[in-house]
Design a protein around this nucleic acid. Structure first.
Lengths: 219, 219
DNA sequence: GTCTATACGGCGATAGAC
DNA sequence: GTCTATCGCCGTATAGAC
């Protein structure tokens, strides 16, 4: 069904990329045959090679796509600020929606990092760049929300990304697992980290002394 | 070269398992051919099938091995308590050493979770069990160190495991990355989480209000 | 320019004889 | 335990159809 003199090629590319993202996220790079990709996308195997050169070219394209989607998601989640705490809640809600509705994005990035970063320096560099940009986006969101540069905000980004990964892996092992608790915890931690950076005395106030009235005990 | 009437079989198994753990962690399950395993371990390809039945049997054995090593590592790290903060430092040091010296253990577990948990329910169950046990071990460590049950200690375990994953992935992307900062952060967070559970008013005290004298600003 | 049909060399996992 | 054989799928090249 030709719709004009121009390429339907883009649509084909799109379908291939979609299938590839899905299958790579499910079974990994090495575990996904080009045959399967062709079958899943309904496009001849060799057309894939026509469009992307080879399997690694396809991988790069998929990666690029997932990275953009991810960063964009984080960025959008962070931008709608009003007051700082509101911005944080918005950002967390956005991240949570991403884990909930499109978990394959993060899973794909994570899986490919572990699977191919070792062997393919190009891919590793791309990956490092992606995670760096993601962190920068978070740091930028914090800066925008508070109006000032928080010293050591990088660490906050790292922690958020780490917990996000944890959520994805946790979901993989138990799909029923509630995200509620995780993101509430994440909120507390982020608030604590930022607050203790704005007012260093705060960090010291917490200690492991048991209060007089323990909430629960073994006896 | 026979060295006695008894099996050198165990040694062979050992060598295969060692090579498998190494290669699975490096290139993933699907990405590692049995040919390569044979070459690496210096044992005939089909002997691998003799010992483990098939590739999946080998996977299960490798998993079991890595899981035991991991849990054992966490357990040992947590047990040498004296005062609570000391126990935490010991535990963190142990985890850090694990990430630093034997990163392949966690990487293997992580990679296999993402790669094969979807398709092989048995493996997923085993994986879930492993992570559950790891968390239980952490929770037990906290209980032992403090002498009481901390309510919601599960969440502390989840956060620690998430950050641990983050460290492994981060190292994968940048092997030079310092673990110092990560584990210091982890310490602060754990102390905060435990303290705010023992004394819930603490959690509320942190807020995102900017103090009068910001440490850094854009102006 | 965009895609399909067919073919091929190689390596994957596995079985059975020794 | 090893050796040899089998067979299917893997990634890829080429030749042409639309």
């Amino acid at each position: 069904m030709p719709r004009g003199p121009y390429q339907k090629s883009d649509l084909t590319r799109e379908r291939i990329l979609e299938a590839a993202a899905e299958l790579f996220a499910q079974r990994g790079y090495a575990g996904t045959g080009v045959d399967r990709l062709a079958e899943r996308s309904g496009i001849a195997k060799t057309a894939i090679y026509y469009h992307f050169g080879n399997k690694e070219g396809l991988l790069a394209a998929v990666l690029d796509r997932a990275a953009s989607a991810w960063i964009e998601n984080i960025r959008r989640a962070a931008e709608r600020a009003s007051c700082p705490e509101d911005a944080l809640d918005q950002a967390l809600a956005g991240m949570r929606a991403m884990v909930d509705e499109r978990p394959w994005i993060l899973k794909l990035l994570l899986l490919l990092t572990l699977e191919v970063a070792d062997e393919k320096p190009e891919i590793r560099k791309a990956m490092a760049e992606i995670f760096f940009r993601a962190r920068q986006t978070i740091v930028g969101g914090i800066r925008d929300a508070l109006g000032i540069d928080v010293p050591g905000a990088d660490a906050v980004g790292n922690v958020m990304l780490g917990l996000l990964q944890g959520a994805v892996v946790g979901r993989e092992l138990d799909p029923e697992m509630s995200l509620q608790a995780i993101f509430e915890e994440m909120r507390n931690i982020v608030v604590f980290m930022v607050a203790s950076r704005l007012d260093p005395s705060l960090g010291a106030s917490a200690s492991l002394v048991i209060p007089q009235t323990p909430v629960a005990s073994e006896s």
